[in-house]
Each structure stands twice: as structure tokens, then as C-alpha cells.
Design a protein around this nucleic acid. Structure first.
Lengths: 210, 210
DNA sequence: AAATCAAACTGTACCGTCCAGTTTGATTTG
DNA sequence: CAAATCAAACTGGACGGTACAGTTTGATTT
């Protein structure tokens, strides 16, 4: 974390990033024009170009930045399971946190943007996949390895099990939001009960036999 | 189904549709230009405009057409469950058919396209949602109502159960393909075993208690 | 007679560059 | 310490070049 000194240059830079982020998220890459970025940022167009070089570079900086931040947040929120913690507790907290963090308008817009530009910028798709579902599934896999030892989870392919759990939780809300827009994002209560049922299903299939 | 007579006009029309479909799917709405549509269709630009009026109209015609076709296909492939058919058979066939029909490059490209343009054309997103997941979940709900009577399924909220089953099956493959491109589409064998495990998980959670 | 064609044309949007002059903040000088 | 100096960042506006949706025209085909 570098110290963001409040100089004119850094102020302008932030202002440009903020303006461009809104426009790109809302309109996509092609439909965003640099004159408007400069106008909304209250900055001359030349300043935009001295800071970021090209439209494409500005776009990449914004999108890669946002994907990184989002991936980091979940990491910090839910600790890996410690010995003795019931798997049900761990999974429920994991699911609730993930839903709370991911199911926001900004992240859904980002995801739509990346999917829409996946042909033009394949790197972005790979990055978002790695930082998003890839990371979650990786952490779950680790957790399932842990819970396998105690016999709380029984899965031949732990990574596959992790992926199923992930999409039990995220499948419906994410895909509805992709097609129906931000208004399809469920409220917090709905997300919590969705998380509960996801955990129940998963443990019925992979949990300790009664 | 109207009879597509082979006149010059209909030939030209089909040619335009084919060319525009490829370009839109591959590049998106804004990055597609009408001169190239005409060129690839081997048609003069004016002909494109007499047939479709505007770029937007052509786009909408293509996308709504494709969404409809895809939705219809599954309908025809898997019959609703008849009395006495084991739920496991029905679900497995349903899942396999759905994966086989949906997990194709064309439909994944269509989905990316619609998601990317969801802000500009919200109607398309709603339509694809209704014809895709909405329709599948509707049919599954009906099936679960049927299997509830025989006690083969136990679910308080049958629609929620249907949605969970749907995303157990479609979640991972669809979302991987969205972000990683057509190369992430699993092969037929992988899809079948994915379907089997999805059914197993679902029945462990909602099936008849042993 | 209707459909189609090729090609030129219109109008507009927009990326990226250029440039003359101003602001800012740090450094040097008297 | 205050004035002078300086480099870098910034402004505003103009502009070249290109791309492209949609129209017009006048000839050709079916």
C-alpha cells in the first residue's frame, strides 16, 4: 500500500479513474468516449492521455484493478476452518460472506462488462475467473481436504465438490443478475436463506452419513 | 412455421441474416459495421436497409430469433415425466440433454452478447432469461410437483428446488464458458459425468429418504 | 415493375495529437 | 525569509484522420 500523497497529479489521476470507471461499467468499452471521461473528471483530455496513454490502457487498468480488489476482500473476511469448527458453520459463513461481497451492483456490472468484452480482451476473463470463482473454489478445496480427515466430508474429487458448492451458492443469483440487471439482486434476507439451503443440500450429498 | 419459399428476396434475406449473425456474435453490436454485413452477405448495402431498416432492428431480429429457437429445442427433446418413470432417469436425461443443447459455442456466444448489451437492450436479457433458465426451471417445477405426489421428491418450495437443480447442472460449465471462452466448454463425456453427479447431489438432498 | 446493385455522398462521432499559455509546488537566490 | 526561477503538470481549444450509419442516385437484373 503506497502512501497516496494528495498532490495535484494524484488528485487528477483519481478523478480520471473514477470518471472512467463509471462510464466503462455503465456503457462498455466502445460506447465510452474519452472526451466525456475528461469532462466528467474535470480534466483536460491531454491530461487523460499523459496519465494513461490510450483508451485501452485506461480500460485495462480499471478492470484489472477492480477484479483484484474484489478477490482480496473475501480472502480477508472468512478465515480458513480451524480444528473443531463444525463444517456447517464454516460453510454457512463462507456462503453468506461470498454472497454479501459479490452480489453488489458494481461487481455485477464488472462481470457483465468483462463477459461482454471477453472476445476483445480475453485476459480480463481469465483474470476475473481466477480471482473470482477460481479463488473461492481453491479455498473450499482446501477446506474439504481438512474436513475429509475428520470424516465430515466424503468426496472422491474434492475440487469438483468445491465447485458444486460454489455454484449451488452463486449460480442462481449471479446468473439472474447477469441477464436481468441489478434489480434482480436479492435482498440480504433472501441471500441468507439461499445460503442456508445451499449448505443443507451440499451436506446431504457430501456430509457425514448419519 | 411459415414456408420459406426460395425466391430471390428470401435468399437475400437469409444471406443477410447469416452474415450479420456471425458478425454480431463474434464482435458485438457496436463493433459490427453494416458495410461488412453487406459485403459478407454478397448484397448491396441498400438491400440490407430495405430488408431491416436499421442496424438495431437487424440486431434485435437476430438475437430474439436465436433465443427462441434454443428454448424450443430442449422442449422437444425431453418429454415431461410419465407415471412410473424413475425420477433418477428423468433428471439424468433432462440434465444431459440440457447440457448437450446449451453448451455449444453459438449459444455461449449469444449469451455473452446478450449479457454485454444488457444495459443497451434490457429486453434481450429478459427474453433470454425467460426462454432459457426460466423455461427449464418451469418444466422442472412441474416435474417435481408430479414426483412429490409419489413421494419421490420432498421439497417445501418446488420452484426453489428446481432452480437449485438447474444451477447444479449449468452453473460451472456456463460460467466458465462465459469468462474463459468457448475453449472452456467441456467435452461430451465430461458433461455426462457432470450431469450424473448433479443428479446424485440433488437426490441426496431432495430425494426419497431411504 | 419491383428488386437489386455499386458507388458516391452526408453527417456525425471520436481517438489521438498539437500547441500556446497558465498553474503548481519545489528549489534557488539575494 | 521573501522574491525569483524552474520543470512539470495542466488547460482549452482546435484539428487531422478515420470510421461508420444511413441516404441518394442512376444503372442493371429478374
Amino acid at each position: 500500500m503506497t502512501n497516496p500523497v494528495e498532490t495535484r497529479t494524484t488528485r487528477k489521476r483519481q478523478s480520471i479513474l473514477a470518471a472512467a470507471t463509471e462510464l466503462f461499467l455503465q456503457r462498455g468499452f466502445l460506447a465510452t468516449n474519452m472526451d466525456e471521461v475528461a469532462a466528467i473528471a474535470s480534466v483536460s483530455k491531454q491530461t487523460v492521455y499523459t496519465h494513461f496513454g490510450t483508451k485501452e490502457a485506461l480500460f485495462l487498468e480499471i478492470v484489472t484493478g477492480m477484479t483484484g480488489e474484489a478477490g482480496d476482500e473475501l480472502e480477508g473476511q472468512v478465515a480458513d476452518p480451524v480444528d473443531g469448527r463444525p463444517i456447517e458453520d464454516f460453510l454457512l459463513e463462507f456462503a453468506e460472506q461470498q454472497l454479501a461481497i459479490v452480489m453488489t451492483p458494481r461487481l455485477m456490472q464488472l462481470r457483465r462488462l468483462v463477459i461482454g468484452e471477453a472476445e476483445r480482451f480475453p485476459e480480463l476473463g481469465k483474470r476475473l475467473h481466477a480471482k473470482g470463482p477460481g479463488r473461492s473454489i481453491g479455498r473450499l478445496t482446501k477446506a474439504f481436504a481438512h474436513y475429509s480427515e475428520s470424516g465430515d466430508v466424503e468426496a472422491e474429487d474434492q475440487r469438483a465438490a468445491a465447485s458444486f458448492f460454489n455454484w449451488l451458492v452463486m449460480g442462481e443469483p449471479v446468473n439472474d443478475a447477469m441477464l436481468l440487471g441489478d434489480r434482480a439482486i436479492p435482498d440480504a434476507d433472501a441471500l441468507r436463506s439461499h445460503a442456508r439451503e445451499s449448505v443443507r443440500i451440499f451436506l446431504a450429498a457430501y456430509g457425514r452419513r448419519p
